[in-house]
């Protein structure tokens, strides 16, 4: 049996795929968070960073495809494993009893699916801008004179909505919860966890999840409380430009 069949066909192989793709995705979300935290600096900083990412060209698409592959495999394997697990216990017990399985570990499929829904919304919101076409009008002029999308303003405008902020907080909360089991679980699946450092791993896993949640939560909270803001004129300018577009008769 070669590596590919072992990964895709055996029970342990599928769990290893879950672990490896999970590791990539954890790496991505941490990088993403660090990038986002630049919102606390001058708008110039995060806008220049976003421009740099956009400027990667084909490399950006390679990274995106790789991440999409990881998300796809992670979900595909989760569904396959879930189906097999259902089949292995078609009749459940009358008396249910849980001894040491954590709540996070028992709700991975629910937290996972809500996070997936959030990712789709998040892409539609900030990447494709399908939900908020006015974001296309938000532009920033960098120090060297290049005009780039104003990511800072998009974030401030997005999180000014209480509904968006709440959905965001709930979603990153669930993602952190998903992570609290997922992070330690991936070490077990590839055979690196032992009782010798299992307790430390548990602590690392929980601290990491809490830190990740705190890092994410602080962004919408700062916008809502006005700690991160933009002069009203920049938002009004966009609103005016959008309405003038709408009022211009087309054709």
């Amino acid at each position: 049996m070669n590596i590919v069949t072992a990964l895709l066909k055996t029970s342990i192989g599928k769990k290893i795929i879950m672990a490896l793709t999970g590791a990539v995705l954890i790496g991505f979300i941490i990088g993403h968070l660090v990038g986002n935290l630049q919102i606390f600096s001058d708008p110039e900083k995060i806008n220049a960073y976003a421009h740099f990412l956009q400027g990667l060209g084909p490399a950006l698409w390679l990274i995106r495809l790789f991440l999409l592959l990881c998300v796809g495999l992670h979900i595909w394997m989760a569904v396959l494993l879930w189906c097999e697990n259902k089949k292995a216990r078609s009749q459940s017990y009358t008396a249910s009893h849980t001894i040491q399985a954590s709540y996070a570990s028992r709700t991975m499929k629910y937290s996972g699916f809500i996070v997936l829904a959030f990712i789709l919304y998040h892409l539609a919101h900030f990447t494709v801008k399908a939900t908020n076409p006015e974001y296309n009008e938000m532009m920033w002029t960098l120090a060297d004179g290049t005009v780039v999308p104003d990511v800072h303003l998009m974030m401030v405008a997005g999180f000014s909505s209480l509904t968006v902020s709440l959905f965001y907080l709930i979603s990153v909360g669930l993602l952190s919860f998903h992570l609290s089991h997922g992070f330690q679980s991936m070490f077990q699946s590839v055979g690196l966890r032992t009782e010798t450092w299992g307790r430390a791993l548990k602590v690392i896993s929980i601290v990491l999840s809490l830190a990740y949640f705190a890092g994410n939560a602080v962004i919408p909270l700062s916008v809502l409380t006005g700690k991160v803001s933009r002069p009203d004129s920049s938002i009004e300018a966009v609103a005016e430009s959008v309405s003038s577009h709408l009022n211009t008769p087309s054709g």
Binding site: K14, K15, E84, A88, R89, A101, S105, S185
Partner: peptide, 11 residues
């Protein structure tokens, strides 16, 4: 044999 998969819950 058709056993399920381990989800690392240690029951």
């Amino acid at each position: 044999a058709g056993f399920g998969n381990c989800t690392n819950q240690y029951e």
